[in-house]
């Protein structure tokens, strides 16, 4: 394990270069380039405003500025889902490279996560700017953003290492992940507020619901980016146990995922 980490450290520039490559390639040949990453959330905001503010009139239900609530949860979710989808098939999609050159293979899934983080940070920046423009109060928790980003990165990386390694041997994984993410989205409080679960379901169901680490991570994002008390008393939900749970689980996933990845790595080249 130590040996593997040493190698990964030696290849840190490769990780950076692959990440930069992903970022560059994504908007290569497009006129405004990476600005698309920023246009994206602006458009989302506009669409949500029209859809939920004007057409569905959610404001009547006591949700003010629902479009900001939605955006503050959906950006980290999209970041998670994009990272996972791309990294799951990363080893398989780079078969040529894996068969021909030696380098620590974990840089492949990690580089996709890295590239997705870049876009995510731009989008969060847009969100914060728009919060300021619309004079929505920022919470001091906003400075915890790097920590929260780190937590999500650890969780995503851990899961990606598991899935991308196993996907070499069972290609079903990448198809399954796609469907699983769809269901996962709806058991995570992105679209609806957490109070909805707390009010409509018995306590035991809520406990099961809260086993989902992404629920805690998304709640934290909402807490630090947009938690207007006008969204109901539960909007500012923060559970210490939940946070600790998410941290412990993420670290465990990362360590065990990395261990599994390194164990299987040697057989990638002959299996792909």
């Amino acid at each position: 394990m130590k040996e593997y980490l040493r190698k990964l450290f030696f290849y840190r520039e490769l990780l950076l270069n692959l990440t930069v490559k992903e970022v560059k390639v994504k908007y290569k040949n497009s006129f405004i380039g990476f600005l698309w990453s920023m246009v994206n959330p602006v458009m989302m905001l506009a669409v949500y405003y029209v859809a939920f503010g004007i057409i569905f009139k959610l404001r009547a239900l006591g949700m003010t500025r629902y479009e900001f609530y939605l955006l503050s949860g959906i950006l980290p979710w999209n970041f998670f889902s994009l990272s996972l989808m791309q990294s799951v098939s990363s080893v398989v999609n780079n078969a040529d490279l894996v068969k021909k050159v030696y380098f620590p293979r974990e840089v492949l899934p990690l580089s996709y996560i890295g590239a997705a983080s870049f876009h995510f940070l731009l989008q969060e920046l847009v969100l914060v700017v728009f919060l300021l423009i619309f004079r929505l109060s920022l919470s001091p928790w906003i400075f915890a953003m790097p920590l929260l980003l780190l937590l999500q990165l650890v969780f995503t990386a851990g899961l990606s290492l598991y899935l991308s390694a196993l996907n070499v041997f069972f290609r079903d994984i990448q198809h399954f992940t796609e469907i699983a993410l769809l269901a996962w989205f709806w058991i995570t409080p992105v679209v609806y507020p957490i109070s909805f679960i707390q009010e409509s379901f018995p306590a035991w169901a809520e406990r099961i619901y809260m086993l989902n680490p992404m629920a805690h991570i998304v709640l934290l994002w909402q807490r630090i980016t947009y938690n207007s008390p006008a969204n109901g008393p539960q909007a500012a939900y923060f559970s210490v146990e939940g946070f600790v749970y998410a941290v412990v689980l993420s670290v465990f996933l990362l360590i065990s995922g990395y261990y599994l990845f390194c164990r299987l790595e040697g057989r990638f080249a002959e299996f792909i």
């Binding site: 030696f10 290849y11 520039e13 490769l14 950076l16 270069n17 692959l18 490559k21 490279l97 050159v101 380098f103």
Partner: peptide, 8 residues
């Protein structure tokens, strides 16, 4: 740049 870093 990319290829060289792949070669370590």
């Amino acid at each position: 740049y990319l290829n060289a870093s792949i070669l370590g």
